[in-house]
Amino acid sequence: MAADTQLDSWEVFMQSRPGANFTHQGSIHASDKKMALQNARDTYSRRSEGTSIWVVPTNEIAASSPDEADMFFDPANDKIYRMPTFYTMPEGAKNI
């Protein structure tokens, strides 16, 4: 008998209510998109936890490497002018 593949792995993202971000839930196994959506629903939304689901093949996900996290995210630190608190507002200015 051929190797038992247990089908492909898919990552599941779910929106908990309309308008919310899609957040990662975990993964499921399925052989195609339709089965992936059904299995994701059965596995991660048995109590109406979601209003919408995305499924993505696990091996299609590109992830940043934890070893390079410092280098990768560092540039954000020296651009503090991206933060609203960087700016001095004239005393007495309202609603800004």
């Binding site: 190797a3 247990q6 196994h29 596995t43 048995r46």
Partner: peptide
């Protein structure tokens, strides 16, 4: 019982992230 099956699946998928396959 369906929940327990689901719990098994959550845990298998979490364990798979360590590099072992479900098979």
């Amino acid at each position: 019982i369906q929940d327990e099956g689901g719990h098994g699946l959550y845990l298998y998928s979490a364990a798979e992230t360590l590099g072992i396959t479900r098979d």
